[in-house]
Nucleic acid binder design. Structure first.
Length: 663
RNA sequence: GCGCCUGUAGCUCAGGGGAUAGAGCAGCGGCCUUCUAAGCCGCGGGUCGGGGGUUCGACUCCCUCCAGGCGCGCCA
């Protein structure tokens, strides 16, 4: 596949014409999409920009430019429009023929620079909720888009297995439930829980909320927490082993939940291993030697090591961050700096790795975990990224800034610049949703007046991820059975699963990232309108057309490209634009993906897919394909259906949405 | 107090300095003997939070004010 691109051809043509006709060499050719096909396929407002310096009206410049433009490479002609736009019209038949040959395969250099995406990062002490789903869907979609653009990507899911939250769960089992450690392992084994119709992460969900209340009722009980934390820190004792066990079991659940929606990871770095491998020692030494941290001798923070943040107003509270506490222990952000250094290969140490232990259940897929045991003899290389995306919600912006500053103050300017915080807003619940889902939860008047309420694991306020997925699957399965009587159970389930995942992932992607998602159950469960199933359905329709073309007419409808007799000229007068629009929108997909990744605004991908599906559904409704008597028209339309089908399957693939065989 | 984010149709949201500000939902009215109606077509609905500025041109950039959210821990 060569690099056929009318867009680039237009860009170069305009550049050449600008030089020849106007004597200017613009740094960049601004491109814009005309509002409708009748205006053209691509446009540049370049002449508006040049008008001032040239002291001539934009339209005159545009006319001069157009006169010298030499059409080539898929651009059929250009014309002046409006007050000075230069609009390009593509050679439609030539474009369609080339596009039918399939997309260029991006070269994926096996040893080239690697991009690391860290996402999900759920505390391993309770079930995943819909806020985690937004994180995972955004992260996974970013990964898929990067791969589609030809990048080598490593997916990391950081496991904070040493924190207070895990300790609290240990306290819950040992103190609140008054269980012996051996009994916890037995009575709360996956098997025993299953017999009772329960599951481990759901037990933990409730227990965690209970423990929070337990502490609130009597703060002296917090000694249980600190005792547990100390035991976990010491290691090699039954309490520490229990904590490790609980965390691992929870991670297993999180991985299983995410697997349901098509999200996987390459490696699970554990915080306990960051400590065990003494990453912090090396990072701290580097920070001290570079003078990036300093010890405070007096005042409130006496005895602490802090990092000063330049450009932040003094006294704002954000100008100085404690990295090492007065008792000598490192804070979360300190560990994060060490971890970030490791991701770029800037640490003198590495983890050791082993395949993740999926027991007591079967392995779902191969994923690596860091370990304190021996390093696997044969394994992929992890870390040493060229660029790092941290998918973390906007509430952590400050800490992410501290981490980037840490890199910068060590002289790693390049890495700090390539240390990207993929920030997004949280998923929250409306007061109405809280009242409906948690009837026992009292809401104050102030809370009721708020636009939304944060979910809270500590209060057990939240919609669990698997509950939502289950509800989506049930609803989808009902609909599938209704529409496809006689379809066997396994196929109903698989179809329903794909629809559910499509609905969920689209819902999580359709909002721009800086918008708080006030979760609405009815919207999330919708299958009509701007939803994932709408997109999937349009592809199923295209597939049906192609299948019937083979079945009834024995016409492949395309695989071999556009038949010579076919083309847009064969269509009824006045309908060509609408047909062409489908191909044109598909041709813009690579640009849309690039733009989405560069801006981290993945909602653009979702939106474009939706606009495409709308265009196809309109086409489908108005223009018969299989029923079309004119052979040339039939072939042209089948070619478009084929192009749409393949292009849309790939585009949905970048969002992790699979298309069912039927719906 | 300081910083970041948000404010567009009844509701939920798109909108790359550029052409007539668009979708979905909800409402109303049509379209299933055709390739699946999870669909299509139509109607109604807008001081783009207010005010200033930059620009040939501002929903978009800058300033300011208002309203709401988040952050600013020796928690993670």
């Amino acid at each position: 596949m060569d690099d056929f691109s009318p867009e680039r051809s237009f860009e170069e043509g305009v550049r050449r014409a600008a030089r020849d006709a106007l004597g200017v060499d613009p740094a960049a050719i601004p491109l814009t999409w005309p509002p409708s096909a009748s205006h053209g396929d691509l446009a540049t407002p370049l002449c508006f920009e040049l008008a001032r310096a040239a002291r001539k009206p934009p339209r005159a410049l545009a006319e001069a430019l157009v006169a010298r433009y030499e059409p080539a490479g898929g651009v059929a002609r250009v014309e002046v429009a409006g007050g000075g736009y230069v609009n390009a019209f593509f050679d439609r038949d030539a474009c369609l023929s080339r596009w039918l040959l399939g997309p260029p395969v991006p070269a994926s250099p096996a040893g080239g620079p690697k991009t690391i995406v860290e996402h999900t990062n759920i505390n391993p002490n309770k079930a995943a909720h819909i806020g985690h789903l937004r994180n995972a869907v955004l992260g996974d979609t970013l990964v898929r888009c990067l791969k589609r653009l030809g990048e080598r990507v490593e997916v990391q899911n950081y496991i904070d297995d040493t924190g207070v939250q895990v300790a609290d769960l240990v306290v819950g089992f040992r103190v609140l439930r008054n269980e012996e450690i051996a009994d916890v392992l037995d009575r709360y084994s996956e098997e025993r829980l299953h017999e009772r119709g329960d599951r481990f992460d759901y037990v933990a969900w409730n227990l965690y909320a209970e423990v929070t209340r337990f502490f609130e009722e009597d703060s002296s009980r917090l000694s249980h927490r600190s005792d547990t934390l100390h035991a976990m820190e010491r290691g090699d004792n039954p309490v520490a082993d229990l904590a490790a066990h609980l965390a691992r079991r929870m991670v297993r659940h999180h991985l299983a939940t995410m697997e349901r929606i098509g999200v996987r990871y390459d490696v699970l770095p554990r915080e306990s291993d960051i400590l065990a491998m003494r990453f912090w020692e090396d990072a701290f030494r580097q920070l001290r030697e570079a003078g990036a941290v300093r010890r405070i001798e007096e005042g409130r923070n006496a005895g602490c090591w802090v990092m000063d943040l330049p450009g932040v107003e003094e006294g704002s509270g954000e100008d100085q961050k404690i990295i090492v506490r007065s008792n000598g222990t490192v804070t979360y952000v300190g560990k994060d700096i060490a971890y970030q250094l490791w991701k770029f290969g800037l640490l003198a140490r590495d983890f050791r790795y082993e395949p993740f232990d999926w027991s007591p259940g079967p392995a779902i897929y191969e994923v690596w975990s860091t370990t304190r045991g021996p390093d696997a003899s044969s394994r992929p290389a992890f870390g040493r990224g060229d660029r790092v995306y941290n998918v973390i919600d906007a509430r952590q912006s400050y800490l992410q800034r501290v981490v980037a500053h840490g890199l910068r103050s060590l002289g790693h300017e390049r890495e700090a610049g390539r240390s990207v915080h993929f920030s997004y807003e949280m998923v929250a619940l409306t007061p109405a949703a809280v009242a409906a889902l948690f009837p026992d939860h009292p809401l104050s008047d102030a809370e009721r007046a708020r636009p939304y309420l944060e979910m809270s694991g500590r209060r057990g306020l939240g919609v669990r991820a698997d509950d939502l997925v289950d509800a989506l699957i049930r609803r989808a399965a009902d609909e599938v059975r209704k529409r496809n009587p006689g379809l066997d159970g396994a196929r109903v389930q698989e179809t329903a699963r794909r629809i559910a995942v499509g609905a969920l992932r689209y819902y999580m992607l359709r909002f721009s990232r800086n918008r708080v998602v006030a979760f609405d159950l009815d919207d999330a469960l919708a299958f009509e309108g701007e939803t994932g199933p709408y997109l999937q359905y349009s592809v199923v329709r295209a597939r049906n057309i192609l299948a019937k073309m083979e079945e009834r007419l024995g016409e492949s409808g395309t695989g071999g490209g556009l038949p010579p007799s076919a083309g847009f000229g064969t269509l009824e007068p006045g309908t060509a634009d609408e047909h062409w629009n489908l191909a044109l929108l598909l041709s813009r997909v690579p640009g849309v993906l690039r733009q989405a990744v560069d801006s981290l605004e993945l909602s653009g991908v979702a939106k474009h897919a939706y606009v495409l599906a709308q265009a196809f559904n309109s086409f489908y409704h108005r223009y018969p394909v299989v029923q079309e008597p004119d052979e040339r028209r039939r072939a042209t339309r089948a070619a478009l259906a084929h192009l749409y089908h393949d292009g849309m399957v790939r585009l949905l693939g970048t969002m992790g949405i699979e298309v069912p065989d039927r719906m």
